[in-house]
């Protein structure tokens, strides 16, 4: 049973992603912002993080950095969603430590496919 954490400050989008993923028997937790996300990360073990770029208090990038530096033992994959779609932004995200990148607006089914792909790989 794969465990997924979604961190997204826009409730609607959170709902969208949750609904998209629930069909496929994943355990999905949600966080409203980076801070919450980190708290949850401390508590539970996740296989995949889906993070929004722009979040209050603690941004998506900061979360990634924290995860990659401080919680190195957790080898979860990270997928970042961002409205910024330019290639250099993508690079920035990937360099920071994310594994995958998707631009907003995204197709939820495409996201689903991606998640499956990720889990198939590992």
């Amino acid at each position: 049973m794969k465990r997924i954490l979604i961190a997204e400050d826009e409730e609607i989008l959170r709902m969208l992603i949750m609904d998209t993923l629930e069909e496929e028997e994943y355990i999905v937790d949600e966080a409203q912002d980076g801070e919450e996300a980190l708290e949850l990360l401390q508590k539970y073990q996740y296989d995949l993080l889906i993070l929004d770029y722009m979040m209050p208090i603690v941004t998506g990038i900061e979360v990634i950095e924290k995860v990659r530096h401080d919680m190195k033992d957790q080898q979860q994959k990270i997928l970042m969603l961002s409205a910024k779609s330019q290639s250099f932004e993508q690079e920035k995200v990937l360099n920071a430590g994310a594994d995958y990148f998707m631009a907003k607006p995204f197709s939820p089914l495409a996201l689903l496919a991606k998640v499956e792909e990720i889990f198939n790989e590992s």
């Binding site: 826009e10 969208l16 089914l109």
Partner: peptide, 24 residues
């Protein structure tokens, strides 16, 4: 850039939910 970001979010949700409605 903020505006475009702000615009994308509702767009994303509109498109997303629509897609789900169509495909599921």
């Amino acid at each position: 850039s903020t505006v475009s970001h702000e615009l994308r979010t509702p767009l994303a949700s509109i498109l997303g939910f629509t897609e789900l409605l169509i495909n599921r």
